[in-house]
Design a protein around this nucleic acid. Structure first.
Lengths: 135, 135
DNA sequence: CCGTATCCCCTTGGATACTG
DNA sequence: CAGTATCCAAGGGGATACGG
């Protein structure tokens, strides 16, 4: 059964732009931030606390990037002390669907991947056995 | 202090591993390689030619990574000159589904993102200050 | 043809200290 | 609290040359 083969042109401008989007999505923290905000609006330090290991700098940069792309909305309340809330825009929420699909795939196959890595590493260790799969 | 995040916990081990998978997917060239191979097996130089701008080094590295994760299968034909073919494994093919979902999302919303970027940049420049990174 | 090895730049990203 | 600014280490990634 042949799956529908979509326009395959990694070289075209279309795929290049998609690649840019994926670069943002693939950025180390972006996905985690989006997932966090998917549950509702959060303050800066709430996000920081909920994502283990992220530095202040990277949180700022990632949020700026997401805001720039129209995925996150930043709201400043002019009070003292400052109160800033971040929330997903409609666009940001729409991203959570394919992201969840990817997350579901990852959850489902993470064990396969781990097994493949172990096998690969073991095979490499035995460098005598060339992976020749002569047909 | 800690608001419960019931459905998704970015801090949990599960999401951490998913993040690893996404890191691979988000790597600059991986997606393009997978998309290329989704159309069928390809030789090394065929992949290189079909992806504009990729260096030999990065193609090798990415293919190794994908092979290690069990997403791509490498077959060497012991002939002269060497003939090596790469193809997606079943696991690799299953990845194309969520990836396509993401790609579809990107295609659909790329204009929104571009518009948001323009607006954001204009807003920033209007304030007379470069906040940080204007990539 | 299919890589591996080397050099090197440049970005990413952490740690820290400092403002409003 | 919510950032900015600065320094610095690690590694991603290009260019090139060479081996099988």
């Amino acid at each position: 059964m042949n799956v529908t083969i979509p326009p395959h042109d990694p070289d075209s401008s279309g795929c290049q732009r998609i690649s840019q989007v994926l670069a943002r999505v693939g950025e180390k923290w972006s996905i985690l931030i989006i997932i966090t905000l998917a549950a509702g609006p959060r303050r800066f330090s709430e996000i920081k606390r909920s994502i283990n290991g992220i530095s202040q700098r990277m949180l700022t940069l990632c949020l700026r990037g997401l805001e720039r792309d129209g995925l996150v909305k930043r709201t400043v309340y002019a009070v003292m002390p400052p109160h800033v809330e971040y929330e997903l825009t409609a666009l940001g929420h729409s991203l959570t669907e394919p992201v969840r699909a990817l997350g579901a795939w990852a959850s489902k196959h993470i064990s396969d991947i781990d097994a493949a890595r172990k096998e690969f590493d073991a095979r490499v260790e035995h460098q005598g056995q060339t992976p020749f799969t002569t047909k």
